[in-house]
Simulated assay, not measured.
Amino acid sequence: MFFLRLLVSFFELGLMIVLSGLIIYVIYRVFIKANPEFDMEEEIIRGNPAVGILVSGIMVSAALMLRKGVGASVGMFRLSISAPADVAFPLWQTALLTLGHLVITLFFAIFTISLTLRLFGRMVNKLNPALRLGEQVRQGNLAVGILLAAVVFIATLYVGEGVSALTKALVPQPRIGTIQIME
């Protein structure tokens, strides 16, 4: 049993290393392409610190949300491996479920962060039409970059728990028996 737990732990570590690299790349590409106001990648190449701070905040926030969503799948994987063979899910099914949870969580991360930034931008523009946040970030306004990164972090703190609850609810659990409490 000890060696099985150790093997599963090493597999999880390897999976998380691969996923972290893949997730970082996907989040970066998606959010760079999702900004319609200006070319974020070009601004990063130019050394615009406000864009760098905002993109960093988006990437960290999306990764935190994805981590919450994948946690339930990792628990399901651990249970499937350690459960008796007649009640455990096949490994391919567990892998597909994990991939599905990752895709669902990525969708929620993209949707939440994009919606939050757009909503916040519209609310600020109503209060002060001259303060166009996207333009301020493009011009390198560090204060606005930090402010928008904080908006993304705050949204992640609230929505991350909901994403975690949703993915936990979507994770099927193998049946490992019944307990009779009273006769």
Rank of each mutant, 00 (worst) to 15 (best):
D39S: 02
I53H: 04
G75T: 00
A72E: 08
V70P: 01
E43L: 08
V51E: 15
F77L: 12
G69T: 02
V60I: 13
L54W: 09
P49G: 05
I58D: 04
R67G: 15
V55N: 05
A50G: 08
M59F: 02
L64I: 07
K68A: 13
A62N: 03
K33N: 11
G57L: 03
F77T: 01
N35F: 07
R46G: 09
R67K: 14
N35P: 01
G52T: 10
S73D: 07
V55G: 00
M59Q: 12
P36D: 13
K68R: 14
I32H: 03
G75F: 03
P36Q: 12
E41S: 08
E42R: 06
E37Q: 11
A63G: 06
D39G: 02
L54S: 05
A63W: 01
F38M: 11
K68W: 05
R46A: 15
A72S: 14
R67P: 00
E43C: 08
K33R: 15
S56M: 10
N35C: 12
M76G: 08
A62F: 04
N35K: 05
L54G: 00
M65S: 06
R67H: 10
P49T: 12
F38S: 03
V74A: 07
G52D: 07
L64H: 08
F77V: 00
M76C: 02
I45Y: 11
G69S: 03
D39R: 05
K33F: 13
M59I: 13
R46Q: 09
L64A: 13
I58E: 07
F38H: 13
K68D: 10
F77I: 01
M40L: 13
M76D: 00
S73P: 00
G57N: 05
I58T: 02
E43D: 14
A63N: 13
I44P: 03
V55H: 02
G52V: 10
V70E: 12
A50K: 03
M40P: 01
S73N: 10
S73H: 11
G75I: 00
N48M: 09
L54A: 03
I45L: 14
N48Q: 10
R46I: 04
A62R: 01
A34H: 10
I45Q: 14
S73A: 09
R46W: 00
G75H: 06
V70Q: 11
I44V: 15
I45R: 15
M65I: 07
S61N: 10
E43G: 04
L66I: 05
E42Y: 11
M59V: 12
I53T: 07
V60R: 04
N35S: 09
K33L: 15
D39H: 00
K68G: 15
V70T: 04
